[in-house]
Write a protein that binds this DNA or RNA. Structure first.
Lengths: 154, 154
DNA sequence: CCTATTTAAATGCAAATGCATGTAATTGGA
DNA sequence: TCCAATTACATGCATTTGCATTTAAATAGG
């Protein structure tokens, strides 16, 4: 038999929670704004292009993208439609699985990704890199990593 | 005369950026899901109710809420409409400034905030508190605080 | 081999969001 | 005092998102 206490957070937890929300919002806003100012599509496009580019010639299935990018199924579906319509990727039916599709990056897609990185990279540097020392960045990464660890059950 | 280098992020910066995005997404999703599962409105409602409650009898102006919560002007405007329609706050015209309104929490609003906290608190504890030691939480908070510091110009 | 279940992806519809603009009150010159 | 600029807030419209459902293909069980 178990007693389980629905423990309330202490001040250090509340503070960490709040700062996490604020810091992420700030950093993300900065990056999204930089992309938009430069006339580029949203960050999500970059993430897709990067993964699809990494997948190489054989491409990647939508469902695998979905898992990598942690987006809902309909989110990926519609995102791919837009990126395809813009000519940066192509979707071709999978030979093995008729339900599936292989997504491949196009030449202009590769180009767009590269040009976006020229804005995205410095924006990350401004939002995160230059605010912390290398050792602080490692510490931060380690602590955030712990937060991402599998949720304690129930 | 200045030379300015658009520096690219190193691996530690990229890692910190990525983890920040992931960890925040995880934590926020967990909390939002907990609230939704319990039949409560989104987190933003809580934030509003808390600030309005803190403001006490005299209330708080929409624009002050806007600054505290870092939401766009139209976001606050519509959010307040919904929360008011649900009966948790009341908006009354300001005596001093005819453009402005004083927002005050209602009894049921106070009650809702308290009931939400019973879910929100433990959810934060699960998402953040129990994953880190108190000293780690303090370190994390400090590092995130640095990220929120004013942006380096241009 | 045939049907029930599961899986991959698309989509209709309603709600939420972003952007630009509108309205009304206040402030700040000249 | 009068009018232009600013400030506080609301809202129309287009886009995006979330949810539930649909379609079509693959798999599993008998």
């Amino acid at each position: 038999m178990y007693f389980f206490t629905m423990t309330m957070p202490d001040e250090t937890t509340e503070a960490a929670w709040t700062k996490l929300m604020r810091a992420q919002d700030r950093a993300l806003s900065h990056v999204e704004a930089a992309l938009k100012d430069a006339g580029f599509p949203p960050l999500a496009w970059y993430d897709v292009l990067l993964e699809v580019e990494r997948a190489g010639k054989s491409g990647i299935r939508a469902i695998d993208l979905q898992q990598k990018l942690l987006l809902p199924q309909y989110g990926i579906s519609r995102l791919l439609s837009k990126i395809e319509a813009a000519g940066y990727i192509s979707r071709q039916l999978s030979a093995e699985d008729g339900r599936s599709q292989e997504i491949v990056i196009t030449a202009t897609g590769r180009q767009l990704r590269r040009r976006m990185w020229a804005v995205y990279g410095p924006a990350i540097e401004q939002a995160v890199g230059c605010k912390l020392t290398p050792s602080e960045r490692k510490t931060l990464t380690g602590l955030l990593e712990k937060l991402t660890s599998p949720p304690a059950d129930t």
